[in-house]
Amino acid sequence: MSFDFDKANQSFDSLPYKDRLKSIADLAKNTLSIVGKDKDIIKPWIRMTIYHSIMVTFFFGGFFLWQYNHPGYGFLCFVLAFFLFLYKHFYDNKQEMRMSWIVYETVIGNDPSYKGATTASKEIKWYIRKIAGIDILMSFVNKSKYTGGGIVKMLIRLFISGLEEVWDLANHYLLPSVAVDRLDITTAIKEMKKLKDRVPESLVGIFGIDFLGKVVRQVTVPAYIILFIISAALGYFGSEILPATTIDFNGDDVAFTFVPIIFAFWIGKLFSNIFERTVTAIKVIYFTVFYTKITHPDRIREDMQDELVDYLNLKQVDEVDNLEEQDVEQE
């Protein structure tokens, strides 16, 4: 079954929110079948979620300590969170590279271990640092604010937005090319340009598709809104038992505690970071399998050949789209 690129984009962009989540859930379920071949695949994800949870906890812990009149300890938490934030790009790329290596070794029939992935990543640590450096650059580019009007600033904003999307996709093709074939970044980028010519006809439609690009925001934003409403109510009614601040509201002094809001955003950020790491893990697994299928199809174990083709073709998304088309025709 071939898969059309424009159709895939349209499917994910136009599906109702509920069906879109179902498609992603199905993709995640099928990804777990790959993970089930070797449990070591999930170990880098576990380490990334722990790292990000500690980073987020230090950051919001600083706010908690500030509210409870411990500014010195609060400032220390902010400093630790800042350094963890800077290093996270290097840590994440290292873990993603290890995950990519384990996935590759699994689909070609070996029995990899996390210890083996650690040894393999040490041989390419300079390449990992290069990719992490580009990640940091793109992070600052993404967070740069260009205000004001004018055609020039509008074009700058469009360029930065496009650059971010291109890098996110390129990054997930670079990971397996470095992890599997030990290619230098420059060489890998050159090879990426030739990669499409080597894609099998049945998979050509999904080359370049970023099918998880908007999922994190679509899932986490509603959660943040709900958490904020609940915590704001608790901030008002809980001002008598928690550290509170007096706010001038239309001439009246109103006691309000920010502790529930800090707690709510801490929980929300923990959830969003774990969800982001999960989405990233799915991408790493997917694109490693994709890269292996394109560049080394003869190495894939025989019993996984058909299973991987269905997995790569996003069969579950195609089926959702076909069901919708049938419903439209019936109407």
Rank of each mutant, 00 (worst) to 15 (best):
residue 182 R to H: 13
residue 156 I to R: 03
residue 160 I to E: 04
residue 24 I to S: 01
residue 74 G to F: 06
residue 111 D to M: 10
residue 256 F to E: 05
residue 123 E to G: 09
residue 295 T to I: 11
residue 57 T to N: 09
residue 213 G to A: 15
residue 106 T to P: 06
residue 113 S to D: 10
residue 64 F to A: 12
residue 325 E to V: 11
residue 32 L to M: 12
residue 142 N to A: 11
residue 144 S to L: 14
residue 52 H to A: 09
residue 330 Q to R: 14
residue 208 G to T: 08
residue 306 D to N: 13
residue 150 G to D: 05
residue 321 D to V: 13
residue 179 A to K: 04
residue 246 T to W: 02
residue 22 K to V: 15
residue 44 P to H: 05
residue 318 D to E: 14
residue 268 G to C: 05
residue 87 Y to F: 14
residue 224 Y to G: 03
residue 243 P to F: 06
residue 313 N to A: 10
residue 98 R to L: 06
residue 293 K to V: 00
residue 21 L to Y: 09
residue 120 A to M: 10
residue 178 V to D: 01
residue 159 F to H: 04
residue 146 Y to Q: 05
residue 315 K to M: 06
residue 188 A to R: 00
residue 305 Q to K: 15
residue 8 A to E: 12
residue 163 L to H: 06
residue 277 R to F: 09
residue 227 L to P: 03
residue 159 F to W: 13
residue 222 P to E: 08
residue 176 P to D: 01
residue 27 L to V: 11
residue 262 I to G: 00
residue 140 F to L: 13
residue 179 A to R: 00
residue 149 G to T: 05
residue 194 K to I: 02
residue 87 Y to D: 04
residue 100 S to T: 02
residue 176 P to H: 01
residue 207 F to D: 04
residue 77 C to T: 05
residue 22 K to E: 15
residue 192 M to Q: 08
residue 306 D to W: 04
residue 275 F to S: 02
residue 181 D to C: 01
residue 45 W to E: 00
residue 304 M to R: 07
residue 309 V to N: 11
residue 4 D to E: 15
residue 26 D to T: 05
residue 125 K to Q: 10
residue 290 F to W: 06
residue 249 F to N: 09
residue 283 K to D: 00
residue 234 L to F: 13
residue 6 D to Y: 13
residue 233 A to M: 14
residue 188 A to I: 00
residue 322 N to V: 07
residue 251 G to T: 08
residue 235 G to C: 07
residue 89 H to W: 10
residue 267 I to Q: 01
residue 7 K to C: 00
residue 112 P to S: 03
residue 158 L to C: 08
residue 219 V to R: 03
residue 188 A to Y: 05
residue 196 K to A: 05
residue 100 S to D: 02
residue 150 G to M: 07
residue 151 I to A: 10
residue 323 L to G: 01
residue 33 S to A: 10
residue 111 D to A: 10
residue 86 L to T: 11
residue 79 V to F: 14
residue 329 E to Q: 08
residue 329 E to G: 01
residue 214 K to G: 07
residue 124 I to F: 05
residue 118 T to V: 10
residue 205 G to M: 07
residue 37 K to F: 02
residue 306 D to L: 09
residue 181 D to I: 00
residue 36 G to R: 13
residue 49 T to S: 15
residue 78 F to E: 02
residue 167 W to H: 10
residue 50 I to D: 06
residue 231 S to F: 06
residue 280 T to I: 12
residue 295 T to F: 11
residue 128 I to T: 05
residue 273 N to S: 12
residue 171 N to L: 14
residue 120 A to L: 03
residue 123 E to P: 00
residue 253 D to G: 04
residue 307 E to T: 10
residue 280 T to V: 11
residue 328 V to E: 13
residue 143 K to G: 01
residue 75 F to D: 04
residue 175 L to N: 01
residue 66 W to C: 02
residue 64 F to H: 10
residue 15 L to Y: 08
residue 138 M to R: 02
residue 84 L to R: 03
residue 9 N to E: 06
residue 52 H to W: 12
residue 242 L to K: 03
residue 112 P to N: 05
residue 126 W to F: 08
residue 4 D to M: 10
residue 190 K to G: 11
residue 289 V to T: 06
residue 127 Y to E: 12
residue 145 K to T: 14
residue 312 L to S: 04
residue 47 R to W: 14
residue 93 N to M: 14
residue 116 G to F: 02
residue 142 N to Q: 09
residue 189 I to W: 11
residue 87 Y to Q: 06
